[in-house]
Design a binder for these strands. Structure first.
Lengths: 142, 142
DNA sequence: CTTGACCATGGACTTAGCTCCAGGGTTATG
DNA sequence: CATAACCCTGGAGCTAAGTCCATGGTCAAG
């Protein structure tokens, strides 16, 4: 038996780089679901596992890629809510994956455009300035 | 001479899919810099060019990739502020490009993780569940 | 059994990014 | 010149995502 790292909120906050306030905030939103310690009396302490450290990292990453906490929560919600079959879980994750790939496409469009523009700027020539519309994803957002 | 499409705010809003309120908001933030019409008397009308339609698209795209309006504005600020050399512009854009590539790395990490997990879910085997920390970018955010 | 380090709750406050008026000017049309 | 259809400014209000107390309970050390 390897000892699973288990910690209280402030240590968890330190290891994830979040503030305790933010951690509690995420717990309220259901993004993080810590266990309940027997300690703490009427207001029991929350205990966080190593797994939750991973979850926290995913949350921050997803967030930095433009997903809202609500969207991120939805994922975990469904995961815990129903005792889903592995198949169902896989389906949901595939949808999530599709959204990531969409973002990747947008990213590639912007990257290509920027590259072209940088290139254009570096050459002292008189080709026409690159236009974003030529590199873009068609006019669809979300 | 091809007629550059020039429009007033409501048409611009329609073609970009933004609300006029949002457009005005962006103008206030300096994200969009329309020209000033001679019409409108004391409160002159703003006129928007096709170029700005492109800018609006870039803004929305960048935003969907997790850039804040402030970050997006900073880009354009510097662009307009100094009469920059092409070299300088290229440098700034290269930095921007680096940020995009960083995001791309994050995206790839998440994508790889999700794929692994989906795969794991679909196989009814008993390999260990994939851990995000094995796919991730090291613990650095921003 | 006191003291310092934690923990919890609840609520007020902040910033970003919009959205929604109200009030008033301008313009094109008949 | 009336009237609809625009335009402008200014300010209030809203949601998301935190942040910042104040207040009070719990625990471990000495």
């Amino acid at each position: 038996m390897v000892k699973e790292p288990v910690m209280l909120i402030s240590e968890f906050a330190r290891t994830t780089g979040l503030s305790t306030d933010t951690v509690r905030f995420y717990v309220r939103l259901g993004l993080l679901v810590p266990e309940t310690s027997t300690k703490g009396g009427r207001n029991p302490y929350q205990v966080f596992t190593a797994e939750l450290v991973d979850v926290a990292r995913i949350i921050r990453l997803a967030q930095s890629l433009g997903f809202s906490l609500k969207e991120i929560a939805a994922l975990g919600e469904e995961h815990r809510a129903g005792q889903m079959t592995r198949q169902r879980s896989a389906e949901i994750m595939s949808q999530q994956l599709a959204r990531l790939e969409e973002k990747a496409a947008h990213l590639n469009a912007m990257t290509a455009y920027l590259r072209a523009k940088i290139d254009w700027l570096r050459q002292e020539d008189d080709r026409p300035e690159p236009r974003f519309s030529d590199y873009g994803t068609p006019p669809a957002f979300g």
